[in-house]
């Protein structure tokens, strides 16, 4: 790789050779304004990874919630986005209310989230390049935890409009809202399968919070998790290669209450633990290629965005900036 700056113009040449040196596998030249050299590196990185069977994530972004700009009570929370490496943080919401639980649209142009700006928590969709944010659950009681279907056309979320918290589905503009679960417990935290035909969610209908599966019409409900008495926040691996769901689990019984990230294989129902001994970790989200996870861990007194590979072999805290940084969602 070679880089050169001439008159504010950056040119980067990238070549990849096979190990024996005989074959040029990639040869590319990137040029443009020199004020953001990181974007060159990210583009080149993704092009190199594309030589494998995988998609790179170097140009992807992570949305999260932070209290970093909350200066006085009542303490607000706002949404932010950062590059996958934690740099280039941008604030998305600016209303000093509580804005939580962001979820990317598949095209990377919108964030659905929960906001208390009008008093009751409601689902908003922010078009982040237009600076617009619309409440799509008006007069619907309280609504939380939106998530876009893989085709971006629908949203699943939790609402107590019918009494207690149930899973609802609406079109991305809020029309056509209808309830798909019906239980005496609280049903929350929906996540779509990569095909959009199934939904996983959390319910305490059997006494403790556990992950359940159903089809996206709400039929064929069955319990997924059986290990541990507290499982929450499912995230379905978006790649077709891995059929698995990451979630938050209280794996240790007794001792202080803390959580780890776990992954359950949908075919074998085998559970693997991703985090251990990093304080309390929760709220996993998959990278778009299904090969990395992001979640939030409390170490010492603050919550920080943390990334790992899907096995949990390499785990790093992302330097996403000051404050408590929680509820990450890895976007396109």
């Amino acid at each position: 790789m070679r880089a050169q700056v001439t008159a504010g113009e950056l040119a980067v040449e990238t070549r990849v050779f096979s190990v024996d040196g005989r074959q040029v596998m990639l040869s590319k030249r990137y040029s443009g304004r020199a004020d953001n050299p990181r974007s060159f590196a990210h583009q080149a990185s993704d092009d190199i990874v594309a030589l494998t069977q995988y998609r790179g994530v170097a140009r992807s972004k992570i949305a999260f919630t932070s209290d970093r700009d909350a200066t006085k009570p009542p303490r607000g929370k706002e949404l932010y986005i950062v590059d996958y490496d934690g740099f280039n943080a941008k604030r998305i919401t600016v209303n000093n209310s509580l804005n939580i639980l962001p979820a990317w649209s598949p095209d990377g142009r919108s964030l659905a989230y929960t906001s208390y700006r009008q008093g009751s928590p409601a689902i908003f969709v922010a078009r982040i390049f237009e600076g617009r944010s619309d409440n799509i659950t008006k007069n619907e009681g309280q609504a939380f935890a939106p998530t876009f279907s893989p085709d971006g056309k629908r949203l699943a979320y939790a609402s107590n409009k019918s009494g207690n918290l149930e899973i609802w589905i609406a079109n991305a503009d809020g029309t056509g809202a209808h309830r798909i679960t019906s239980s005496h417990g609280s049903d929350t935290a929906p996540t779509w399968s990569p095909t959009g035909q199934e939904i996983a969610f959390t319910s305490d209908r059997a006494g403790s919070p556990q992950i359940y599966l159903m089809d996206s019409e709400g039929l064929n409900v069955r319990r997924l998790t059986t290990v541990g008495n507290w499982n929450d926040a499912p995230a379905w691996n978006p790649s077709k290669e891995y059929s698995e769901i990451a979630y938050t689990s209280r794996l240790e019984v007794g001792g202080p209450i803390r959580f780890d990230i776990a992954v359950v294989d949908l075919a074998t129902r085998q559970v693997r633990q991703v985090t251990a001994g990093r304080g309390s970790c929760e709220y996993p989200s998959w990278a778009p290629n299904g090969r990395h996870l992001v979640f939030s861990c409390k170490r010492g007194n603050t919550w920080q965005i943390t990334v790992s590979d899907r096995e949990g072999r390499t785990i790093d805290t992302l330097s996403a900036g000051p404050g408590n940084n929680v509820q990450p969602d890895w976007g396109p």
Partner: peptide
């Protein structure tokens, strides 16, 4: 804070109700 985000939103809802 000793509970997961989504579960605690559900628990807060039950308490308020």
């Amino acid at each position: 804070e000793r509970g997961t985000v989504d579960y605690n939103l559900a628990l807060g809802d039950k308490r308020a109700r």
